[in-house]
Amino acid sequence: MRHKLYTGSFAWIIQRVSGVLLALFLTLHLYFMKNINGPLGYQSIAGMMKNPLIKFGETILLMVAAAHTLNGIRIVLLEAGAPTRFQKPLFYLAALGIVVLSITGAYSLLGGRI
């Protein structure tokens, strides 16, 4: 039997996984943007961006970034002195924020504009 999964460790796993994904994305993003004038060319990139699969990927990216950001704010607040009794409520708040951001973001990216 694995160790019981508490809110705090759940938040930590999200933070870890999203962090690694974002670092990976950041590296690729910077690499491709730098080589934009290279073999791929701006046009092909711009064309790629219209691909629904890429749009979907961007939505996921937004969700991951939102999760990392909001939970990051939670950790910063807690380490700055927010009392322990707030750690779970803060996580629920962050989770709510992630959901809201994801929905609005997805709507904006996949559909029209806000």
Binding site: R16, G19, V20, L22, A23, L26, T27, L30
Partner: peptide, 16 residues
Amino acid sequence: FLASAIYHGFYGLWGI
């Protein structure tokens, strides 16, 4: 912005 992003990302990986 760029420096922060790179620092934040790679320091995180370094810690892991």
